[in-house]
Design a protein around this nucleic acid. Structure first.
Lengths: 117, 117
DNA sequence: CCTTTATATTCATAAAACCATATATACTAC
DNA sequence: GTAGTATATATGGTTTTATGAATATAAAGG
């Protein structure tokens, strides 16, 4: 696959999308309602940003019943994978990224009742 | 030093700034007229983007006579350094980055008469 | 002083990005 | 079928960002 560096960074240049990517990187796969709860944002906002990530082929989605699960695209070019990994590690302990993770773990009635490590 | 991930990526999310950073990463230090020639852009445009990079503390500048030389800030956080390095390696052979480097090497009357490897 | 060269900044405009609200679609269960 | 939940998209407004053109500043050399 092919992604222009400029476009790749444009996608990362928004706090909401960055928070989504950091969470997906830590958790592997999350549905829209989990992301909405973790970030404390309204659902259309999350969906719009997920659409941008999906169009850029940075994330993949799959439907399971009424839920749609998103995950990082494993076929990203090597250098973008390193960039994403480094970014995730670099900011995971900072606000608001650490708070997002905590909120996710405390989400009630989480579909699939997944549990954060 | 302290730079927010979101802001860092906003800075990288512009093709002109990315070209400047890739060149600086390869060459170490370049003055404004070298960057202007290498990218084939008008001088105010380059200066404006350099100002943004300088304000974000991603690059440092030093005056030498009538020239002002720019270089990457060595005190960037580790993760941003890795990101920059990976980006540079990832795009160095692609257009327009490869072309910028060639244009720089072919610049006539280059101050300091530096020579690209 | 004046001229030339290098660099920075200001200004007005145009394009892009983000947002909240409202609405539409899709699935599930009855 | 209807109701409820999950997700997506469309609309209109506001803010941000990039741009070219013009102008300003600073150094060097007469």
């Amino acid at each position: 696959m092919n992604i222009k560096a400029e476009h790749f960074f444009k996608i990362l240049a928004d706090l909401t999308r960055l928070r989504v990517l950091v969470l997906l990187s830590r958790e592997g796969e999350l549905c829209v309602c989990e992301l909405t709860h973790a970030l404390g944002e309204i659902q259309p906002k999350i969906s719009r940003h997920l659409a941008l990530l999906r169009e850029a082929e940075i994330v993949l989605d799959r439907r399971q019943g009424q839920w749609i699960y998103y995950r990082l695209n494993p076929k990203l070019p090597d250098w973008t994978q390193v960039v994403l990994t480094q970014t995730t590690e670099g900011v995971a302990k900072q606000i608001p990224f650490s708070r997002d993770h905590r909120a996710l773990c405390q989400m009630p009635n989480r579909p699939g009742s997944a549990c954060c490590a």
